[in-house]
Amino acid sequence: MCQRGNWIINLFVILCYLSTTISLPCTEQSNNTNQNLPKDWPCSWNDGVIPFVLDLFSVSPHRLINLVKKGHEFIEIRSCLRFKEYDPTIAAKITNFTYLYYTYSGVLESCCLKFYIKPYGRRLVVITPLCNKPAETGHATLHAMGLFHDNPTYEYFRVLLIHT
């Protein structure tokens, strides 16, 4: 369940913290030993460019495009991360390619969901009617990128901000 409170401030601090580490050189094992990055952070994202595709066959593709664009802008303004759109058919054919896959669900459910089970390939980001603000879409995006509330890096900054 999502924690309420200063999660937006926590998001900013975590993004700043990650911004300094994503420029490190990537090796096969670097993400396993780098405690600053999420456990499932793909080496291909170390340049700060996060690939994504949009499910244009979803219930409301225009709403999806608008919400994702605003969510990406929200993150990009506050970090060194950038998002690059790919054609879904091309992204699906690239070997060992990890990307965010945005789809829209008209069901009223939380937008704070964890929807990927393997560290590579397509990472599903479900945008719902409750994810109607850029910060909320950004929050869902960060979950798909590997940041979760129980992540030690996330928890460290949450505790730090509460006590300052």
Results as ranks from 00 to 15, higher is better:
91 A>P: 03
82 R>Q: 13
105 S>Y: 03
31 N>R: 01
143 H>M: 13
145 M>C: 11
3 Q>T: 13
2 C>I: 06
157 F>L: 11
24 L>E: 07
134 P>Y: 03
22 I>A: 01
108 L>G: 10
74 F>G: 00
71 G>T: 09
102 Y>A: 14
141 T>A: 00
142 L>P: 00
123 R>F: 00
32 N>E: 10
108 L>N: 11
150 D>H: 12
69 K>G: 00
157 F>C: 05
38 P>F: 02
31 N>E: 05
51 P>M: 04
141 T>P: 06
18 L>D: 00
43 C>I: 02
67 L>R: 15
27 T>K: 12
154 Y>E: 00
135 A>G: 02
68 V>I: 12
55 D>P: 05
25 P>N: 03
119 P>Y: 04
9 I>W: 12
132 N>T: 15
13 V>S: 00
105 S>F: 02
48 G>W: 04
48 G>V: 06
99 Y>S: 05
20 T>G: 04
102 Y>H: 13
144 A>W: 05
60 S>L: 03
82 R>Y: 15
124 L>K: 02
62 H>R: 15
44 S>E: 10
5 G>S: 10
64 L>Q: 07
66 N>K: 05
42 P>D: 04
26 C>L: 07
125 V>C: 08
45 W>Y: 02
115 F>T: 03
72 H>Y: 11
79 S>L: 04
26 C>Y: 10
100 L>S: 00
14 I>N: 03
85 E>C: 11
108 L>K: 12
35 Q>H: 08
82 R>T: 13
37 L>S: 02
